[in-house]
């Protein structure tokens, strides 16, 4: 049960809102962090906790794109395909990933390591092409950078190439 495992965190989340239902999305995040996806039994548990019916949880969760209703690969690669990234080459990135991982958008690698999706604009249009892997952004992608990211993830589970606090152009570049 989620509540047993994350009691304090859940209590804290509930304390932020005067109306319980507001805690729905935060609790779904807790669940997704725990398992990588949100299972039906967790939805039922959350419904119970918030005094909602399971359909009320279900209608909400299916409206948003960030919740997985089934298990995903360990690394969920999401490439932005909106216009701004497309202008600077996101289609190429998509092709590279397809070639390197051998999976099309919507699929996962058989080793369960990578899932691949296309998403809409992630607010990094000035630093495209870009992708998000799990919680992290990777920007200004090149083929070489992509290779290093995938290699890093495979070997260490993380990559130093992910973005830090965002600023572009960076101050050093600003010589005006």
């Amino acid at each position: 049960m989620l509540i047993d495992k994350y009691k304090d965190e859940i209590t804290e989340i509930l304390s932020r809102y005067p109306v319980k239902r507001s805690a729905l999305i935060p609790l779904l995040y807790v669940a997704q962090r725990d398992q990588g996806y949100v299972s039906e039994s967790v939805m039922q548990e959350i419904a119970h906790l918030l005094r909602l019916t399971p359909p009320q949880v279900y209608e909400t969760i299916t409206f948003y794109t960030m919740f997985n209703l089934k298990p995903m690969g360990k690394f969920h690669i999401q490439v932005c395909k909106s216009l701004m990234c497309a202008l600077v080459g996101s289609d190429t990135v998509i092709e590279w990933i397809r070639a390197k991982l051998g999976i099309a958008p919507g699929e996962s690698t058989v080793d369960g390591l990578f899932s691949f999706s296309l998403v809409e604009c992630l607010a990094a249009c000035g630093t495209g092409p870009m992708m998000q892997i799990n919680d992290d952004y990777y920007e200004q992608l090149t083929e070489d950078k992509l290779d290093r990211i995938l290699a890093d993830l495979r070997s260490t589970g993380t990559s130093r190439l992910k973005s830090g606090p965002f600023m572009w152009p960076e101050p050093v570049n600003v010589k005006r």
């Binding site: 359909p55 279900y58 209608e59 299916t62 409206f63």
Partner: peptide
Amino acid sequence: VKALAPVGR
């Protein structure tokens, strides 16, 4: 009753 859910978008 709240049994019906509009699902998806």
